[in-house]
């Protein structure tokens, strides 16, 4: 074992302790559920979670597939990255989209962020889970991201309608997880609940985990919309907006649908610079996600409805 993993001979550092906990959670799901799936958002947190799964079953193959819910509005670089990474690592990849919504022309520019997120993300996810009859789905959410997440369990129970009831959560003690569900019910599992944003970056650095290049600063065509820096990623951006695009050196702190994900001005083109920038930033991660501004407690609302 490399020296960086230990403080003295029998102490684990923070990252290795979090890693051991996450792997324990991932193995528990593989052992206890009939048909688990790992939801893959292609973001940095997902990348860490996927790496943890690879480690949990090394030297074997991960016994469950990855599933990406493609809202059809993801950055093109994300899709390219998804294809390359999963092929190289030999993952079974499922890609699901709400085709009815897509054919009806639902999109953020035409229908607004609320409708788009509901139809193309939440509904798409629920349909996909039902279609494949998954009884457990891993998600890469962290508790330090948002206030309502701070109280969510690692094993978060969902009823037959995929609803989360924050007032009726199962007690979760020590590292003993209640994995019993009835037919049709399911569990969302968050193996990196206890990781912070800094832990994620540290781990990516330590383990050399590949991530989508959009996280690193680069000159990109940017339009400023209500204070958010939106990148022109394809020709679906209304031409009158796209016309205002200017090249700016930016990077993304989180990744989602390109019209709903704001960039930040940045010079950080390495992980070290990203961390340095992060330590001096004054805005929390989710401010670059447009969807949070809809209403107070909006994330909690979305989660009750089944969104991750």
């Amino acid at each position: 074992m490399s020296d960086s993993s230990k403080i003295n001979s029998y102490t684990l550092n923070n990252l290795r302790e979090l890693e051991a906990e996450s792997i324990h959670i991932i193995r528990e799901v593989a052992a206890e559920f009939e048909k688990p799936v790992m939801l893959y958002s292609i973001g940095k947190d997902s990348s860490v979670m996927v790496r943890l799964a690879e480690k949990a079953f090394y030297p074997g193959k991960v016994p469950f597939p990855l599933m990406h819910i493609d809202s059809k509005w993801k950055f093109r670089e994300m899709i390219e990255f998804r294809e390359r990474y999963t092929r190289e690592m030999g993952w079974d990849l499922i890609v699901e989209s709400n085709l009815e919504g897509f054919e009806a022309g639902i999109g953020p520019f035409t229908h607004g962020s609320k409708v788009h997120t509901d139809v193309m993300k939440t509904q798409a996810l629920l349909k996909a889970l039902d279609k494949h009859r998954f009884d457990a789905a891993f998600g890469g959410a962290r508790r330090d991201e948002e206030k309502s997440r701070a109280k969510e369990r690692i094993f978060s129970f969902r009823d037959r309608f995929h609803q989360w009831d924050p007032k009726n959560q199962r007690p979760e003690l020590w590292d003993i997880y209640n994995t019993k569900v009835h037919k049709g019910e399911s569990i969302r599992v968050f193996p990196i609940s206890n990781w912070t944003e800094l832990d994620i970056w540290q781990y990516i650095r330590l383990e050399n985990i590949p991530i989508v290049p959009l996280y690193f600063a680069k000159e990109r065509p940017i339009v400023e919309l209500d204070g958010n820096l939106i990148m022109v990623d394809d020709d679906r951006m209304p031409p009158e907006l796209a016309a205002k695009a200017q090249m700016r050196k930016v990077r993304f702190r989180t990744l989602g649908c390109y019209p709903l994900t704001g960039a930040i001005d940045s010079e950080a083109d390495t992980i070290e610079k990203i961390v340095e920038e992060m330590m001096t930033v004054t805005k929390s991660e989710r401010t670059t996600r447009v969807i949070d501004f809809d209403q107070e407690g909006s994330m909690e609302q979305k989660k009750r409805e089944g969104y991750f």
């Binding site: 330090d144 309502s148 701070a150 924050p166």
Partner: peptide, 23 residues
């Protein structure tokens, strides 16, 4: 800053366990 869930905020009590992170 801490009371995450709406119901708790309105009642002014911390009902559930909340996990916080700092270093």
């Amino acid at each position: 800053l801490l009371d995450g869930l709406k119901a708790e905020r309105e009642q002014g009590i911390t009902i559930d366990v909340a996990y916080r992170y700092f270093s």
